[in-house]
């Protein structure tokens, strides 16, 4: 693989409703793979397909719409808008959606952050920020959840809480998690080594 090539693989099929953990050492391209699936950038060769939508053929706006409707992303860090409160951060993807308040409250409850609802996000610890980011995805109720090291900043109790809330997403929701956190491996029915994909 040359220096400019971020990822190089022939085919990766993930079935709907899967609970997939992709593990591998740091710097191998796990985050890049998630960004590729989310359509945050397009491959130089080949294509990315989500359901019937081929991301390569969609415009930037259409890819944004697809992400808003169907893809929830939990980033490893720098997840929140720092001048917004916890509830405002969770509400970010709920553009025009009804029952905002109950969705926000339910999602925060699932990650044990309901008491932080009006806190400014810049006073939260990294672990708390991570849980708010998970809540933001939970309240979206997306078809696909892409989680990038969702437990990296969490202690054991909160790591279990977060990973359980993700695993317990509706069964039709596809969960793709990339992580090198051994604590969560046993929660996933399917674990792939990144090197196996390549």
């Amino acid at each position: 693989m040359s220096e400019d090539v971020l990822l190089n693989f022939s085919k990766l099929d993930i079935t709907g409703g899967a609970r997939l953990l992709i593990k591998g050492p740091s710097g191998i391209g796990k985050t890049t793979l998630l960004h590729l699936i989310a359509g945050l950038f397009l491959p130089d060769k080949g294509e990315v397909q989500i359901g019937d939508s081929i991301l390569n053929k969609l415009s930037d706006n259409e890819r944004s719409t697809l992400r808003r409707k169907s893809v929830g992303i939990i980033f490893q860090k720098l997840n929140l808008i720092d001048h917004l409160t916890v509830s405002e951060n969770v509400a970010l993807p709920l553009y025009g959606k009804k029952e905002r308040e109950s969705k926000i409250t339910d999602a925060l409850k699932k990650v044990n952050m309901e008491s932080f609802v009006n806190e400014s996000s810049n006073v939260l610890s990294l672990g708390e920020q991570q849980r708010v980011a998970v809540a933001r995805v939970l309240c979206m109720n997306p078809d696909i959840v892409l989680a990038d090291e969702p437990t990296s900043s969490l202690d054991d109790i909160n790591a279990e809480l977060v990973i359980d809330s993700l695993i317990n997403l509706p069964k039709e929701t596809t969960l793709i998690t990339v992580s090198h956190d051994h604590r969560i491996e046993n929660k996933f029915p399917k674990v792939l080594n990144f090197s196996d994909i390549k």
């Binding site: 989310a38 706006n61 944004s64 808003r68 992303i73 980033f75 720098l78 808008i81 993807p93």
Partner: peptide, 11 residues
């Protein structure tokens, strides 16, 4: 982050 969670350039 906003773009990644679905905000369009127009927004």
């Amino acid at each position: 982050v906003l773009r990644a969670i679905g905000y369009r350039k127009k927004e």
